[in-house]
Design a protein around this nucleic acid. Structure first.
Lengths: 205, 205, 205, 205
DNA sequence: AATGAATGAGCTTTCATTCAT
DNA sequence: GATGAATGAAAGCTCATTCAT
């Protein structure tokens, strides 16, 4: 086996990057299974030999692209959070975050859904997604913790997971499955649901 | 194109069934992409020729199995609903339904997640799942409608979608991704979240 | 191996005939390679089992159909010859026969060309066609012989072959390949060519 | 779809050539339908992957081989024509050309007849053959035109087609069907027939 | 450092034919 | 006599990956 080339020179970095960009574009356009290595190198303008000196295999490439992509998703979701007084989480703030999640799903819808789908059949993909999920859930728990004086959530860990899942999943459905219903109505309903959970928490009948 | 064999004889029905059972088992065990037609017929103890006289192709077989499976999922989720006075939807009832959804995810977890994953790359699979989703959402709307006198949900359609998605998605995560957290805590949190939504609905600050 | 059924009863004869008719129709319509045994029995309204009790295999069926077909071709070409005073072969008579050959090519063009094509890769098909060719050439030689007092053909055998080939081949080209030229012009030219050969024979410069 | 490899390196050209040579040999030997891709690559000593990087599919390979072959046939038939004073077309010249056609049929008899047969069931093969036929007919018309002062052919176009067909077809028959008659007798008879047509043309009784 | 020719396991599907019922 | 379920060899083609140049 050939040892992988670790890009040190300027040109190397560029080549590696060109491959990743080309692959991302093709994966988004034609799906992951629908894209073969030859197409990638052709689009990137490099040889198949180069490809395999920068990436162990196609899967490795995908994982790297996915990591970059999920970083971008994370940033899109949370980047503007600093503008809020984080301990004044009201319905508006909840809604704002939800809207950011929906925006993040617009970055590369096909690639997003394609890779998301692979979680369930590919442990490596899943691992990358889990890392991202942990990050998101941690962020949510942080918000809950900072606002616990105003809230009535008893099981913060479970709440964070449930909230995260709900928003993700509705965004997912809205973008990929497309129930012919206006996104704003879904966002509003989500905001209500989550804000009510925070406000009233556990209310045994 | 060869016309498909419509089972008339006893033997025929058995063979068709054996193929479906073998395929279901292998799909669950090794994943759908990881199972080829040869393995299926070997497990079923029939010839490859038989396979293709009962099923147009591998995809058709998968779709048939999926339809059967989703029927089973639907029944598991809703079968005991008749025991409830449907217009007295309280937190307990909400929790009961959620528990049934979680139970349905135990029928064939791998197959469930495998096919669910394919929704995003395969329109045919998606169509079958969408039919199921519509059924479920309709059922939820029916419950909301019957309980609207006690509830404060303004946008029933959006609410039904959001509720359905949340439960599905949390069950999904719990079963397939496995966040190391007790399922009961997730179910409780979901029940709280949904019950609060129903109870308080839209509460602009 | 199952022994072949020799149709003796009325019903048997009918079944055998139905299979042949169905096969001929499908071969003509969809080509020989494009027709499979299942389609034939379905069109004939019999079972695949029946098929194989009347015909050793698909090839045997084809050969039988071909023999019948070539008989028909032969009849079409020569049936009206008795109306001529066979020893007064003039240009009109030559032309008349040529026209009949062209007509024979209209009986079942696709089947005709399909089987003709198979001559060169299938010795059995070729044998049937050769038998037919011999018959035709013999007929031509008979005409030449009966008119030799008026003609100047020295090598009757070679002439008969050359004449037969020319007419067949031009008809073939006209019907199957279709050079965008009027058939009548080709027929006239053929008539001239052949009549000149008969009239002037060998004319060393 | 994978893009085809365009040979750039020395090795590449060799491989492509080895495949074509092996295929030509096998097609000639065992027939086209009787040869599968695996046999071709085995004979060529290359991998099946190589095969499909040089040729889109088996059919494409056949078409390429056929084009090369028909070029060779054309050259064999007409190459020595420059030695003749083209406007002195006598019986000897006619006979010489016919002999060349017969020679061309000796290059690769089986392949020739195999592909010729496919004309009638395969439009692509037919197209290649039609291109060749047009070339030949054009050549004949050119001869007729240059000799029209000495000839009595009224319909040059039809005559060229009829002449071309006759020679082709008799050569075909002589080589593949093999009526046990001496080739020279057929060639002589053909020469007489064609020369008489040129000399006497249309002679209504 | 880069190239691209070569590899070959692996997959789906067809269809003539057999034979148990 | 008749049926049709079952068979399985055989074929064409893809694509991730290796390695000689």
């Amino acid at each position: 086996m050939t040892t992988l080339r670790t890009p040190k020179q300027q040109r190397s970095v560029q080549t590696r990057d060109r491959i990743m960009k080309a692959a991302f574009a093709l994966f988004s356009q034609k799906g992951i299974h629908g894209t073969n290595s030859k197409e990638i190198v052709e689009k990137a303008g490099v040889s198949i030999g180069s490809f395999y000196s920068y990436f162990k295999n196609k899967k490795t490439l995908l994982l790297e692209i996915l990591e970059d992509f999920l970083d971008q998703v994370y940033l899109t979701t949370w980047k503007e959070m600093e503008h809020f007084t984080i301990n004044e989480l009201g319905r508006n703030e909840v809604k704002f975050i939800i809207e950011n999640v929906f925006k993040a799903y617009d970055i590369a819808p096909t690639f997003h859904s394609q890779t998301h789908a692979l979680r369930y059949s590919d442990p490596d993909i899943n691992r990358v997604y889990e890392r991202e999920r942990t990050r998101e859930v941690t962020q949510i728990r942080y918000l809950l913790e900072n606002n616990k004086h105003r809230m009535r959530v008893s099981d913060q860990e479970a709440a964070a997971i449930v909230i995260h899942n709900s928003v993700e999943s509705v965004a997912h459905t809205a973008k990929f499955i497309g129930p012919r219903i206006d996104e704003q109505r879904l966002i509003n309903e989500l905001a209500d649901m989550i804000y009510n959970l925070l406000l009233h928490g556990n209310q045994e009948e």
